[in-house]
Design a protein around this nucleic acid. Structure first.
Lengths: 251, 251
DNA sequence: ATCTTAGTTTGGTCGTACCAAAACGGGGAT
DNA sequence: ATCCCCGTTTTGGTACGACCAAACTAAGAT
């Protein structure tokens, strides 16, 4: 039988023990890795329910404890979607997966107004770049999408709830100009994370019309192929929106 | 002190244990929420170890199963840092927390070259905006930081490993021009996520010198307060870097 | 004081048991 | 046949107890 590591040697070993690579073997980690592999390789089909816990414990030769721990871990990583009492569903990761997994954490970060402002500023930063890109390189299709989104804005001015939808949709078109699936995912993130802080905002047909005209100006600048004008229009639009939110509840 | 519920009574209590008929809630969720609250409120001090599982099960009146599930969930959310056999450490979330929590997921997404390219493109997009911002609004301190970083580049040209560090550091300065803590976090994310794909890149003093000159051009444009030139310089720098990585292994 | 060592926590794993909700299946009404 | 009702089986959620090995701690040896 291999003797336990003498205390004297432990100290020495710790010196070379990397803080992150310090993987003392947990059975659960092994199960997690194997399940992860099976999901990524498609052996566990996307959209199908995971085998029952009692089956998994047999196929892995582990106790239900570790199986459940593995399922929970993978669930938190977005590779498994588990509702309280239902069979977990296998999910191959995509860009939205990250958002779902991060949502909770981000919410914890947005407890202070400053953090919300930082997040909003980053959104403004991104969209400034996007409208520049649109002005320089937007395709005909993309312009057409923007026009359609703008028309939807106009049609919804009288209905604040509907207008909000079309407002989000208009900005969403911008996130597609790069043909990079990461950006739409980012847009979803901003929409989801900032929504709670925007719901408090007073809405009215007057404000909707203001926003519609702002969108109109942005699109006009894009069609003029004038990135600077587009960026300015976008920036003043979003700055005004923030100012409105800020003043609405003096915080 | 309320004596622990005798096992014999459990059966009886279970009959009325259901708070409501439609409660989809799991006991674990309640514990998770409470622990989360205690961490965010500071009742559980950041950096200190969590109480022992057996203490928690007493204070929450839940089984160790539930306590362990809660700890695992919070660990996956980054509010608790748990090494295999050690006491979990309480961690108040910050922007880096998100990166740690998402790192694993992102890695799963970067299995295909196209995904890496998308991620890299998004980085280029961000930095294009950053250098523009720097050109327009960089403070004296920021310029000084860039100069210092550039000097470090020059000093490390002959040592590829060291140059990589200074290279990352130079770009890191850009992520601070906005005074928005989100951006440095994003930089850390890019660095960590793209590093595995860059490690394969061939490095040489010649290439280092090329990159140094590229940085020099970027800084020059920033100091000229010419956003378009800065953006162009940054873009060609990063495009060249990608091209080099791409051709290095014909993939 | 420092190192060793024995004893005590404490996390990791296992097995069993029970409950309630979900999934399943069969028979009866339409 | 199709649909609905109802009983049975399956399955996830929780609890309890036990054991081990590693981490921790404090007393004792040098």
């Amino acid at each position: 039988m291999p003797a336990r590591t003498p205390p004297l040697l432990r100290k020495v070993q710790n010196l070379s023990a990397m803080p992150s690579k310090n993987a003392q073997s947990r059975v659960a980690d092994s199960v997690i890795a194997q399940l992860e592999q099976k999901i990524l390789s498609g052996e566990l089909v996307n959209g199908e329910p995971l085998p029952a816990e009692r089956d998994l414990m047999e196929s892995f030769g582990a106790s239900r404890t570790v199986i459940r721990e593995a399922i929970l871990a993978l669930s938190n990583r977005g590779l498994i979607e588990s509702k309280p009492r239902y069979r977990p569903i296998v999910r191959k990761p995509n860009y939205e997966t990250i958002l779902n997994a991060t949502g909770q954490i981000v919410q914890n970060l947005l407890t202070e107004t400053g953090d919300v402002k930082n997040l909003y500023d980053s959104r403004v930063f991104i969209e400034r770049g996007l409208v520049r890109e649109a002005a320089v390189a937007a395709t005909k299709d993309c312009i057409a999408d923007l026009k359609a989104a703008l028309a939807a804005n106009k049609a919804a001015i009288s209905d604040s709830a509907a207008f909000y939808e079309t407002d989000v949709a208009f900005h969403g078109v911008l996130y597609r100009v790069c043909n990079n699936p990461i950006f739409p995912a980012i847009h979803m993130g901003y929409t989801a994370w900032l929504a709670p802080h925007w719901d408090k905002m007073l809405r009215s047909p007057e404000r909707n019309e203001l926003n519609f005209h702002a969108h109109q100006a942005i699109l006009a600048a894009i069609m003029e192929r004038d990135p600077d004008a587009a960026e300015d229009a976008l920036k003043s639009h979003l700055d005004a929106a923030w100012e409105h939110v800020r003043t609405t509840f003096t915080q």
